[in-house]
Design a protein around this nucleic acid. Structure first.
Lengths: 160, 160
DNA sequence: GTCTTTTTGTTGACTAGGCAACTTACTGCT
DNA sequence: AGCAGTAAGTTGCCTAGTCAACAAAAAGAC
């Protein structure tokens, strides 16, 4: 390929950035996330914090390390993230009485109250961004993305 | 909605993270970018640096501020990014003789040599990630994403 | 029962970006 | 010509991650 003789010096038609599906994915994804971040900002919450809150809603209590696994972040990051959420009184951190190393994170009453409001923002953001797509089209895209996730066994890594 | 009477306490079925298309987008996008970053790592280049190099390939010389516009980054970020690329001898920074404020960035010979190799990594990464999709399916996804981009007039913002 | 290994969470150094203040230089108005 | 306004690039401070070293505690080996 690159060894092909090319007297006219046009041997390497380097593909454009936009030739990769990953480019479009990242472009749209970054805008969707940034848009959501803007909406969350008014509530003093970041996207990563939202994910924690939403995760905690279902489980009632979760070890930071489990959260790290679920979110695809390091324990160090979760440690600091939890600090912030505790400071905002949205999350309660408690030592595990069974295991001196372990902790457990849970929503406070305020956190539990906030989640549904933020969920509505998430709905609105998604709807606004993908309004251009017919619902059939949206389903197709989601199916394709799920297929990619399945094929590569991608673990949750919603935040960078 | 949240005012609906609900004696069973099931009034707010808060949607799951996975109910949003944006979630899947971000999950896949982050993995694709992280995968690409890993491939680039061996060449001592980051994804943002790759984007700069690829942009410069077409134009031969570009002002940092134009680059900032194209990449959706601040001038401050471009300033530092250019520093790194100059340090790696992949980019040449030159003062504009016409305008005492302005500069111009251009690929060095080494930079120009590197781009096609990195482009191959980009191709490989994209192909590997989306191998699960039929080419028709890939085209559908790309069309949908382009539609979203068009409807919102999204400017280039490939890097966070 | 002790000693090694593993696990849990924290911390500090580092990175890459944003934002805003700043310097320098050009532009346009009069 | 001079001066206000604007544009280009740099810098310092901030944020939110990673990574690796660490302390404390539990688990496992024997």
């Amino acid at each position: 390929m690159e060894l092909t003789i090319d007297p006219m010096n046009r041997s390497s038609p380097v593909p454009a950035l936009t030739d990769h599906l990953g480019y479009w994915l990242r472009l749209v994804s970054n805008h969707v996330s940034a848009g959501f971040a803007r909406r969350l900002e008014r509530h003093g919450v970041t996207v990563a914090e939202w994910v924690v809150l939403r995760e905690l809603l279902d489980v009632d209590a979760l070890a930071p390390s489990r959260l790290a696994d679920r979110m695809g972040m390091t324990r160090g990051a979760i440690s600091k993230l939890a600090d912030r959420l505790v400071a905002k009184a949205l999350v309660d951190r408690q030592d595990d009485p069974q295991d001196g190393r372990a902790q457990t994170l849970a929503l406070t009453a305020a956190g539990r109250r906030l989640v549904p409001r933020l969920a509505r923002l998430a709905d609105a953001n998604d709807a606004a961004f993908f309004a251009a797509l017919a619902s059939r089209e949206r389903a197709t895209v989601e199916a394709a993305l799920r297929k990619v996730v399945a094929q590569h066994g991608l673990k949750h890594r919603p935040v960078d």
